[in-house]
Structure formats: structure tokens, C-alpha cells
Amino acid sequence: MGPLAPNEIISENTNYLIAFFIGIGFGWVLESSGFSSSRKLAGIFYGYDAVVLKVFFTAAVTAMLGLLFMSLFGWIDLDLVYVNPTYLTSAIVGGIIMGAGFIMGGFCPGTSFCGAAIGKIDAMVFIAGLFIGVYGFAFTYGWLEKLYLARYMGEPKISEKLGLSDGLFGLLLILAAIGMFIVAEWAEKKFPREEY
């Protein structure tokens, strides 16, 4: 039956309405779990706070298990689920820029809006920087186009590239996630930080 919008079970507009409510819920959960604090967010890079890693990996694992089981029960057609196309070069370059910005600014794009919503000035400055980056990219697109579109890989899945079944890759990812959580909790004890 699913996905709902591509199968025309719900209309585009209903889809946006649901996205609106999910977005509000997402923002609320982000704020209430402390994601509007840039110190907490940057903690992942210094080892004293691994909440970013835990939350986002738990979310990814939950979504992955949900999709795989729903596909197994025939509730969703995974072929119709949107997968971002991969341009390898720009993914690597963009990832480095985004990571550096995350370390320096203490926010990622979503959490900066979250911080700005509760009146954090550093988050607002971060958003201003974000728009400078967006416009800068847009106005220099002519020069960057070749780099941006280099090494197009379609819509690959890691499980396909490795020749594993989706389920087996899922299990490996879960084990990797649990392993990372254990390391992260160890690091939190090893590099404590009291005041924030």
C-alpha cells in the first residue's frame, strides 16, 4: 500500500500537512533533548557528549528496521521510496565542509533553526552564515558545476554494492551502532566536561 503519496492514497497537500506536523514534532523532540545547545552538539567531536551520535544512529536504525519490516509485511514498496542520488565527489567535499562548519559553529542546519527558535543568538548567526553559503554556492554554481556533478552513481545502496542482502546489512549496521554507542559511553567517562 505505501508509500502513501506516490501511490496516491493521500494527496500531495495531505502529504505536506503530515510533513508539517512531523516537522513540528521533530523540532520539539530536538529541543527537548538538548539539541539546541551548541556545546552539547559539539561534544561529539571532543568526546564529552555523544548524544548526537546516539540520537541520530538510533533514529537511522529505527527507520531502517521499520522500513525493512514494513516491506516484509507488504505495507510499503521500497522501490517507490525516494533515495537521494549520489554524486560521490560533491558528497565528500560537501561532507568535509559541513563537518568543519559543525565543529566550528556547534550546530548542524536543522538544530540551528531549533536553537534560533528559542532565541539563541549564536544559532541566528549560524543561520546567517548558512544563507551566505547557500547564496555563495548559487552564484558560483557555474564554476562549481563540474565538481558538483562529478562521479554520479545513481541511487546506490551500500548493501547492493557489498553484495549483501538488505537484512544482513541491517544487522551489521545495528551491531556497528551498538559498538559505537559503547565506545561513546566510554569516551564520555574518559573525557568528562562538567559545566554546560
Binding site: L65, L68, S71, G74
Partner: peptide, 24 residues
Amino acid sequence: LALIIIPLGIIIAAIPADRVNHSR
């Protein structure tokens, strides 16, 4: 968390691939 997601992962890994990814 580990007690919940690891068994679920084992279940999904044990199911033949063509049954997970079907649209019958």
C-alpha cells in the same frame, strides 16, 4: 536498546532477501 534492536536485526537478516524486498 541493544536487547530490542539486535533480535530484530537477527530476524530481518534471517529472512530471505526476496521476501523482504517484494511488492507482491
